[in-house]
Design a protein around this nucleic acid. Structure first.
Length: 510
RNA sequence: GCGCCCGUAGCUCAGUGGACAGAGCGGCGGACUUCUAAUCCGCGGGUCGGAGGUUCGAAUCCUCCCGGGCGCACCA
């Protein structure tokens, strides 16, 4: 269950009062109060009453019950609510007490969730394209974990098949002093692998894993395609199948797919889809309640067939989620750059990390909506990233860390209990507190919509409000020292967590 | 042809039913005897691709059109 926090308590009290579910928003115009609700507008039709009249009633009752300091009907029928300073001060105290747990535990039922991501075949280094997959998938995994689910990160790769044969052939050709085949792999990394003895795949995998760890993605499980192959027959036995023209088909069209799919070709070879089936079966057999696949837009055609597999195996199709993100397009000098790993003209993640660092890279790749295609200008990457808003947010955290250092041994948590009801707050303080109190809602939305980019957006707002507060008011040499220290500590918690959920660090100094 | 995603400021993007549509970058002009100026303050900037529709209310939902990206295998 969602841990109660000030805004959720106020929302519930108002819902009870109105006899309908209330949602609170933060009006952009400060004249419209600290919070506002449109509940009267929504209720007007069904109750057959003018919205303004309903709004006025709700406003009066909210004040009567002591939920808010003042309230009034406004506009077409909004209820604008004003909360007292003491209410906000209490909110700060709760954030400081909750610490890094503030906003966590929103899951109504705890699930075992597997998130499969990246899953690039070991034919070359991790690229920025894979990195978007990882940055997105890992952030979703972090959000799910923060909500209270048990999350496992999974990497699946092909250790056989055509591409791997070409990869081996390319390395072997170089070892013989020949050029790699036309349809083989040509990057400089292939030549490096050729200088090492033995199978190049383990070395390649080791490098890829190191890159991913550097990118702060840790996988709990690595599954090889060859492990899955043996389980194909038992998976097929569980599916709805038929034979036609000497091939074995799955009746996926009866389960939401637009056509049936071949499992075993007429020459007796299982298809890739048969391996998918076996893999899905194994995942569920391992006890996961939910399977999440993170795939690029070029794989969106797989959604229906994967969900069909879940259904045929006896699981609700919604328990197999496919998260699709749009692709990363490389641009160089204003012109589109075609990405082909085999030609070697890609941007490797390690290069990007060497140039801009992990924080800027993760921020850049996850701060856009996953439904939005990303254009990465190779030339401008460095310059652009130095102006990356991630530093704006990190700087706010570093400033707070500086204040808390200068405060000495003060026990901020203990002091926050003494923050008086009589606290009189400045405008910048009120705005900052309200911003911090939004955090649990932002996290829930981001989690449910599988949209981690909401966190960077929110973190910028927090930093914005903090920098403004910092500029206008002193913390240490202030009569409000105790409250302001608590406010700083609360802000630090929220920034740190917002960044952590997308894999970005919050530095103590900059 | 069919399916999925996108179209918002000069550029990169937030904003998925609420009040005059926002931020960063870029441009112009201000603010450091102060807990970090990687900051703050001000100015300029828009047919929210277009047309209909639903609604008290639409950038947001529905339909069509235009433009862009990605897919439509007995490949992996």
């Amino acid at each position: 269950m969602t841990a109660p926090h000030p805004v959720s308590r106020l929302t519930e009290a108002l819902s009870e009062l109105a006899g309908a579910e209330v949602t609170l928003e933060r009006p952009s115009d400060p004249e419209h109060g600290d919070y506002a609700t449109n509940v009267a507008l929504r209720l007007a039709a069904t109750r057959g009453r003018p919205p303004r009249e309903l709004a006025a009633e709700i406003a009066a009752e909210a004040v009567e019950r002591g939920l808010v300091e003042s309230a009034e009907a406004a506009g077409p029928g909004f209820v604008n609510l004003h909360v007292p300073d003491a209410w906000l001060a209490e909110g700060v105290r709760e954030i400081v007490e909750a610490g890094d747990a503030f906003g966590s535990g929103s899951a109504e039922t705890r699930e075992r969730v597997q998130v499969e991501m990246v899953s690039a075949n070991p034919t070359g280094p991790i690229t920025v394209a894979h990195a978007r997959n990882g940055a997105y998938g890992d952030s979703v995994a972090r959000l799910l974990g923060f909500a209270g689910h048990e999350v496992e990160r999974e990497y699946y790769y092909n250790d056989g098949g055509t591409q791997m044969e070409r990869f081996h052939a390319s390395v072997e050709a170089l070892r013989r002093g020949e050029e790699p085949p036309e349809d083989g792999y040509h990057g400089a990394y292939v030549a490096e692998l050729a200088t090492l003895p033995g199978d190049p795949v383990p070395a390649m995998l080791e490098q890829m894993q190191a890159t991913l760890e550097r990118f702060r993605i840790h996988f709990d499980g690595w599954t090889l395609e060859s492990e899955i192959e043996a389980e194909i027959p038992e998976a097929i036995a569980l599916l709805d199948t038929f034979e036609e023209e000497a091939a074995v088909w799955a009746r996926t069209s009866a389960h939401g797919d637009d056509k049936d799919r071949v499992l075993v070709r007429s020459d007796g070879e299982p298809t890739y889809f048969a391996k998918d089936a076996a893999y899905v079966r194994r995942k569920y057999a391992r006890g996961f309640d939910r399977l999440i696949y993170v795939l690029g837009a070029d794989h969106h055609g797989y959604v229906a067939r994967l969900q069909a597999l879940a259904e045929m195996l006896g699981h609700p199709r919604e328990t197999l989620e496919v998260l699709i993100y749009q692709l990363v397009h490389l641009v160089e000098g204003g012109a589109a750059k075609k990405v082909s790993k085999r030609r070697g003209d890609v941007v490797f993640l390690d290069e990007l990390l060497d140039t801009v660092g992990v924080d800027a890279a993760r921020w850049f790749l996850v701060s856009r909506g996953h439904d939005q295609a990303i254009e990465l200008d190779v030339d401008l990457a460095k310059e652009r990233t130095q102006k990356n808003p991630v530093y704006y947010v990190q700087y706010a955290h570093a400033r707070i860390a500086g204040i808390l250092r200068n405060a000495g041994d003060d026990d901020v948590v203990a002091q926050s209990h003494e923050v008086g009801v009589a606290t009189s707050l400045e405008r910048e303080e009120r705005e900052l507190v309200k911003r911090l109190l939004e955090f649990p809602h932002v996290v829930v939305e981001a989690t449910e919509r599988r949209a981690p980019h909401a966190l960077p957006t929110y973190a910028i707002r927090v930093a914005d409000d903090f920098h403004r507060f910092y500029h206008h008011h002193r913390v240490l040499e202030s009569e409000q020292r105790a409250f302001r220290l608590a406010l700083c500590a609360a802000t630090a918690h929220v920034i740190r967590r917002s960044l952590d959920l997308v894999g970005v660090e919050a530095p103590e100094r900059m």
